[in-house]
């Protein structure tokens, strides 16, 4: 049985979503048509609105409706601290903990020369500019604990090396509820290097 062109079109469009293949896309399309037309219209509207209005914050590069995002505009946040993360979802993760009251800079990736992602692609010039002109006293490098994330952190640390700014890196450690015997050797080695007096 073949569907009508509009349905085929909808199924194909839904496949742009991550993790959605032919089968799930078909299920989603039929569900929306059968049971939730108003929800689907709302989704369509939000998609159009978001795609047309969301841009990059000029100050921290995260996604934002406005030229400067609410986080960067918020005067109650401590602009002496700048936390550098790889993606907007990392920013959300740090925010959801609720402990950090400084500002952010989102690289939108990490250095990966084989994929053609270099300093320009992750906004290094913009970051250096921001650090130079602002009141930043501490740069917290919160890139992922992968070798590429580590390389990106050290790259930025090297660039800031000559300035008087304090450069810190998130600690690596054993997860809460974890067991030493099942912890990866690399994590354990890091945890040992970063041990603290009690």
């Amino acid at each position: 049985m073949s569907f009508s062109p509009s349905i085929v079109n909808l199924v194909n469009s839904l496949r742009v979503l991550p993790g959605v293949g032919q089968k799930s896309a078909q299920r989603m399309a039929l569900h929306l048509l059968e049971r939730d037309r108003s929800g689907a219209l709302a989704l369509a509207n939000s998609l159009v609105m978001a795609m047309e209005s969301v841009k990059r914050c000029q100050s921290c590069r995260t996604f934002s409706d406005t030229d400067i995002c609410p986080l960067c505009e918020n005067s109650r946040r401590d602009s002496r601290k700048l936390c550098v993360v790889e993606t907007p979802s990392d920013l959300f993760a740090v925010e959801s903990v609720g402990q950090y009251d400084g500002k952010f800079f989102v690289l939108m990736g990490h250095l990966s020369p084989i994929e053609g992602i270099g300093p320009d692609e992750i906004g290094i010039d913009q970051l250096m500019q921001r650090v130079k002109e602002g009141e930043v006293e501490e740069v917290i490098l919160a890139t992922n604990p992968t070798v590429e994330g580590e390389a990106t952190a050290h790259f930025i640390a090297d660039l800031l090396g000559s300035s008087s700014i304090l450069v810190t890196r998130l600690a690596h450690g054993i997860p809460i509820g974890g067991e030493l015997g099942y912890t990866d050797g690399g994590t354990l080695a890091h945890a040992f290097q970063g041990r603290k007096p009690l």
């Binding site: 020369p113 084989i114 390389a151 050290h154 790259f155 090297d158 660039l159």
Partner: peptide
């Protein structure tokens, strides 16, 4: 685990 990862951007970049 005998050799730790480097601690300079240049060493990482050279490896890459």
């Amino acid at each position: 685990y005998l050799n730790a990862l480097p601690s300079s951007g240049l060493a990482y970049c050279s490896g890459l």
